[in-house]
Design a protein around this nucleic acid. Structure first.
Length: 333
DNA sequence: AATGGTGTCAACCGCGACCTG
DNA sequence: TCAGGTCGCGGTTGACACCAT
């Protein structure tokens, strides 16, 4: 079994750079050195890595405590398991997350929260630790920059209306001519005609991340976008009967219809998708401006999406009043 | 060049669930 | 049934790299 140690920062996969020298021992590790019989802690050395790799190659993994003893490693089973799963496993993918992966993480996190291992299971080669770190360093950083909590409605709006479309666009560009990417089973419930997993994920998130579920007066009948709890076919279903009782709801429903129609058609191209979606978004803002405020905090949403609408609908220079332009969001990434 | 601030990420910790004798 | 061992998950820590001043 041939394996090549791939130290961090060594560039593209397959690069044959020598492993880095062992890092300095951490404080507690140095203390432990006095008694060699103690279990080792801290950074793994190349020798330890090789020992673990060779042992697993020969005997397989599992039973980590006994494995650690049998392999002669002065490490806990936990430590061995972590080292193997997060770093030494041959199928661990290295390098930055692709736009597709980022989009999937954002989408899955909106559904499952901090279920890192569950999310990691949908991203082959990525570990829960890696995804957790990505969330804590990148995503939470953006939330801080925006001056809001990562779990706040405000940040979720910014993510869905600004960040995810940009990621979808980038992802689409990266594999525009490639074969369609299929989302993992149970993840995507939209029409399979959507050509881009990233676009589908963004669309799913827009449709399903419960923006309005918690808003005053919000229900299945007057949600701009149906929530995930309504049904699996929420992207295309509307409750016209209930909406008919509420003129305000009808106006919002119209914008929803645009989303639904867009999704139903299974648009062929992401540009078409977003240009079709943008009027709905614009309509959402217009409705709000006209005083048909459906929810108390709609004004907040208007502010966040205004820049996006200005850019994508009219292609005009961003209004000075806009809180965010596309460039702002692009720079955030 | 030195220093301080910040970001990244490998590794550790605590806890609960599960397994086994 | 129960107690001890093991595993896996999510949260946290700390070393190091990088950048700005």
């Amino acid at each position: 079994m041939e394996m090549v140690l791939q130290p961090r920062g060594s560039g593209a996969a397959g690069a044959s750079t020598p492993p880095p020298p062992p890092r300095k021992m951490v404080k507690r590790e140095a203390e432990d050195e006095e008694s060699a019989a103690e279990l080792r802690r801290g950074p793994w050395t190349v020798d330890e890595d090789l020992t673990l790799i060779n042992y697993i190659a020969e005997h397989g993994d599992g039973r980590w405590n006994s494995l650690a003893r049998a392999a002669g490693l002065k490490r806990t089973g936990k430590s061995c398991r972590l080292r193997w799963l997060n770093y030494l496993r041959p199928d661990v993918k290295r390098g930055d997350f692709t736009a597709d992966e980022q989009l999937l993480i954002l989408d899955l996190h909106s559904r499952w929260g901090n279920r890192w291992s569950k999310i990691a299971a949908q991203l082959p080669g990525r570990t829960d630790n890696e995804i957790k770190n990505y969330w804590r360093t990148r995503v939470q950083k953006h939330a801080r920059q925006l001056g809001c909590d990562v779990n706040s409605r405000r940040f979720k709006d910014a993510m869905a209306y600004l960040w995810m479309p940009r990621l979808a666009e980038r992802a689409s560009q990266s594999h525009h001519a490639a074969a369609p990417v299929v989302l993992p089973a149970g993840i995507n419930n939209t029409a399979p005609a959507l050509p881009c997993a990233a676009t589908a994920a963004a669309a799913n998130c827009l449709a399903e991340n419960n923006y309005y579920e918690h808003s005053p007066g919000a229900s299945g009948s007057n949600c701009v976008v149906p929530s995930s709890s309504s049904s699996d076919s929420s992207l295309t279903s509307t409750d016209s009967t209930a909406a008919a009782h509420d003129e305000k709801s009808v106006q919002l429903q119209n914008s929803n219809d645009c989303w639904a129609a867009t999704m139903q058609q299974g648009v062929e191209d992401h540009d078409e998708f977003w240009s079709a979606a943008a009027p709905a978004l614009q309509q959402l803002v217009i409705n709000n401006d006209a005083g048909h405020r459906q929810f108390q905090d709609m004004q907040d949403l208007t502010g966040w999406v205004q820049g996006f609408c200005d850019g994508i609908v009219s292609d005009a220079a961003a209004d000075e009043q806009s809180l965010w332009s596309l460039d702002d969001i692009w720079r955030m990434q």
